[in-house]
Nucleic acid binder design. Structure first.
Lengths: 209, 209
DNA sequence: CAAAGTACTATACAAATGTTTAGTATAGAG
DNA sequence: CTCTATACTAAACATTTGTATAGTACTTTG
């Protein structure tokens, strides 16, 4: 077994045992549970090890509380700073978040990338076509859109046009809203009628090859 | 307060309370702790709510065990499909991953975005300047770079030039390597001498406002 | 060489905790 | 109108659990 810096082999084993409980969504083990797992005949043995882990800064013991071993985050896995955004295929109608049958997977996104949208219904789409090259959004990019954010002029939106999802910019001309493609090839202005805006694009992800 | 599908407001509050403990690395609360937090005068009230959450599939109760409430993963947070990439400021020299004093935070990135680089040393940088507009990389974007990937022609790389990090494209002309800015404003070719390539850009993140 | 740390056993106690039984009250569904 | 679900109070009991005291034995560090 590998060992963690500054810890003895036994202490490493104990710490990994504690972490296993957390990964599984369970409360920390009791000292008797630890003792049983390692074959100790007294809970004091387990208590001593956890005490050593506390002195070395890996855990915190909440005195008196049952299962009172708190794992201090070694910079990983503890702080959940991500959101799982469902990846959707083409969404013919309705709120995309409810179309579970079109769910293709999930994309984990750092909350910092979705500032202010973290409690909204979000979805991710793979960009196809060149309609948004003017805004530096290309085929193969991923976009994360917010279904609950009111669209404003200039926003890149996911719109449903003729049963297909496309990315467009929301534009305003003479007080009326239009959808505009950001590409020299597509210069059409689409009036905002009988058509749905399914979400406002909040972030873009590109993988380089 | 928002509510989770199929749960009452109270049940949503209880579930969020349970999740808070987990986020903090602590064991689940006892029924009396839940009761105290919500002002219930009997632990049975808390117990009933958690029982309802169990019937609806959000938690599992380990009978008899203290703090025996296990949070069942609703497709998120449990499976760790992300990598925490350190965000670095300007890195004057050396392997960026070891320059912990320049660490500004971490960016969680979906492993799918870093295909093949997940075991390498990665770092994230905030893009400043317009030198890569030709490759659709703009000021304010985040790039994640791999310090262990051999650079190839055409790759966008993080290079150290005059003590500053810049993004450039690795180009080849007459068998020799150069660094090239991808902007009409900057057309200089920089010879690949006495200068370090600190990483190859693997993915780009943009936040829209 | 002594002191501190590691690695345990053995026994015991008070407090913490899950659980049970017995109710009350309200709202919504069939 | 009845049944079920929600949303609690009240009191009590058997375990579970953290913790304490008292040891033994071995290893590492100053």
């Amino acid at each position: 077994m590998f060992s963690i810096e500054g810890l003895t082999l036994r202490q490493t084993e104990i710490l990994e045992f504690l972490r296993k409980f957390r990964r599984e969504g369970k409360s920390a083990p009791t000292y008797r549970e630890i003792a049983k797992h390692f074959g100790f005949k007294s809970p004091k043995a387990a208590s001593d090890h956890v005490h050593a882990l506390e002195k070395k800064g890996y855990v915190r013991r909440h005195g008196g509380r049952s299962r009172g071993i708190e794992l201090l985050s070694p910079k990983d896995t503890l702080t959940d700073n991500t959101i799982s955004v469902p990846i959707l295929g083409n969404i013919p109608a309705g709120y995309p978040a409810e179309q579970t049958e079109h769910r293709l997977g999930t994309l984990a996104v750092d909350k910092a990338m979705l500032d202010g949208s973290t409690r909204h219904r979000l979805f991710a789409l793979l960009v196809s076509g060149e309609s948004m090259e003017g805004r530096s959004i290309h085929e193969g990019d991923w976009v994360v859109a917010d279904a609950d954010l009111p669209p404003h002029e200039g926003d890149v939106v996911v719109a449903l046009i003729d049963g297909e999802n496309t990315l467009k910019t929301l534009a305003k001309q003479e007080g009326r809203f239009f959808l505009k493609a950001e590409s020299p090839k597509y210069s059409d202005l689409i009036p905002l009628k009988e058509m749905m805006i399914q979400g406002v694009v909040r972030s873009i992800f590109r993988r380089m090859y």
